[in-house]
Design a protein around this nucleic acid. Structure first.
Length: 445
DNA sequence: AAGTCTTGCAACCGCGGGCTA
DNA sequence: TTAGCCCGCGGTTGCAAGACT
């Protein structure tokens, strides 16, 4: 595999980004799109490698980022998603509009892990620590036994051991609805934090609907009559068989049920809040690097970040609003300078980016798999959707002329992102399901 | 007030996969 | 088929700021 050529180049800046660098990168991307990342630094006049530019943009400068502390709902969702997806931060991030994989990863490592441990939950397996310790002890003793046996020359036994260590455990380990138990515990976490309880709009339903719709609507390799309960632990045959689950997580689904219910009394009684409530985030100042942004003079809109607590949106010098630090969403909706800037990716990006950024002009252009995924996405991606009632409410009647004018470009941005997320979701849930061989399903019927 | 420890998070690094010539 | 390029991901590091002694 070839490595990124920039890795070998000398005299490239590393470390924290200066406001000037941010400004250059933002200017460049708002004007031309990123195209090929490797060419961005050169075109933008930056002494950075493309990779670094990409990272800075994705993790910090991107317009749709929701900065600030994570809400309790978001944390709970991350925990639930982690129970299902493991350390697949990008996939987890795809379900949290405005959050980056890096941010989530950091949160997990710095905060959530500790919280879970404090509450007696193993953050890796999402099982009670006591249970995990017992398992470890059991495994340790089993290993020592197997080692004794393998030392006698039995290669077969070592193979079995390897299987167990991968938690394949089809015969050895009885599948348990771990996640259901864990989720119940998480609901306690949430309750203890005094969060709202939205009952039905749970992640379980979200996943179930996704999984269900995926299996029922996807035309590729779908089992025509998927009956019985699916144990994901059983499906998780190994690293290359894609359900992408934490190997210790078991979910049960009743695919026959009209409502796609999770087969667990824990789920039926637990009160999990998983809906993202964008209003809960608070814009917090980044500790170190504060971008100071000045847009090109030919740009009809400009935003000056005097500090992170307030900014001014102006249209040709005419101020259209001064926004104080109310909430991140208000900032994003009322103040985001990105709203005021068209993102002409498609115009100047290189071929590949053009393809990626292509926005179908009509429904007929949208491939089926994207369409149905949009349906799946819609209720979940509140913060990222134009249908978000919260956002609409925020716009209210006080929406300014400039905001109306700017909306088009932002909605493009969101549209693009939604599609990307839809595609990602399709990839995550679809690919994995589609990969499951018929024989695998057969085992559950 | 000064030194040390802890925490949070931005950024880097290395790797794997997809694409293309 | 292979090699090179590029992108994206996940793990890790380094550092600034805050907390603590």
């Amino acid at each position: 595999m070839g490595r990124h050529s920039c890795c070998y180049k000398q005299k490239l800046r590393k470390g924290l980004w200066s406001p000037e660098e941010d400004e250059k990168l933002i200017k460049h991307i708002t004007k031309y799109g990123h195209g090929c990342w490797s060419s961005v630094p050169k075109l933008a006049g930056l002494q950075r490698c493309g990779k670094s530019c990409r990272l800075r943009w994705i993790n910090y400068l991107r317009p749709d980022l929701k900065r600030g502390t994570f809400s309790q709902e978001e944390e709970n969702l991350i925990i639930e998603l982690h129970a299902v997806l493991g350390n697949r931060w990008s996939q987890i991030a795809a379900q949290l509009p405005g959050r980056t994989d890096n941010e989530i990863k950091n949160l997990w490592n710095s905060s959530i892990k500790k919280k879970l441990r404090q509450r007696g939950i193993d953050p890796n397996t999402h099982k009670p620590l006591s249970e995990v310790e017992n398992n470890n002890e059991e495994k340790a003793s089993a290993n020592s036994k197997n080692n004794e046996k393998t030392s006698e020359g039995s290669s077969e036994l070592s193979f079995v051991d390897a299987d167990n260590s991968n938690t394949l455990g089809l015969a050895a380990e009885k599948p348990k609805p771990t996640s259901s138990v864990v989720l119940d515990r998480y609901s306690l976490l949430e309750n203890s934090a005094g969060s709202t309880n939205l009952g039905n709009s749970s992640t379980h339903e979200f996943f179930l609907n996704r999984f269900h719709d995926q299996t029922s609507s996807s035309s590729c390799n779908k089992p025509s009559d998927l009956t019985g309960f699916l144990s994901f632990q059983q499906m998780n045959y190994g690293p290359n068989i894609g359900l992408s689950m934490n190997p210790n997580t078991t979910l049960f689904f009743n695919s026959n049920s009209k409502t796609t219910e999770m087969i667990s009394d824990h789920f039926s009684t637990s009160n999990i809040t998983s809906t993202l409530l964008p209003s809960t985030s608070i814009l917090s100042a980044p500790a170190r690097v504060k971008p100071s942004i000045n847009f090109p003079s030919d740009n009809p809109f400009s935003v000056k970040f005097e500090n992170w607590d307030s900014c001014t949106v102006s249209n040709n010098g005419r101020s259209t609003g001064n926004v104080s630090s109310a909430s991140a969403d208000q900032l994003q909706t009322n103040c985001s300078f990105f709203e005021a800037n068209a993102f002409p990716w498609t115009a100047s990006d290189c071929g590949k980016a053009e393809k990626e950024a292509h926005i179908p002009s009509s429904d007929s252009e949208i491939p089926e798999d994207i369409k149905w995924n949009e349906y799946l996405q819609t209720p979940f991606l509140l913060g990222n959707s134009g249908h978000n009632p919260g956002v609409q409410e925020m716009y209210g009647e006080t929406k300014s002329e400039a905001q109306f004018a700017a909306e088009g470009s932002l909605s493009n941005w969101h549209h693009q992102n939604q599609q990307q997320q839809s595609l990602q979701a399709a990839e995550i849930y679809g690919k994995h399901f589609q990969r499951l061989p018929a024989a695998t399903f057969g085992q559950f019927s």
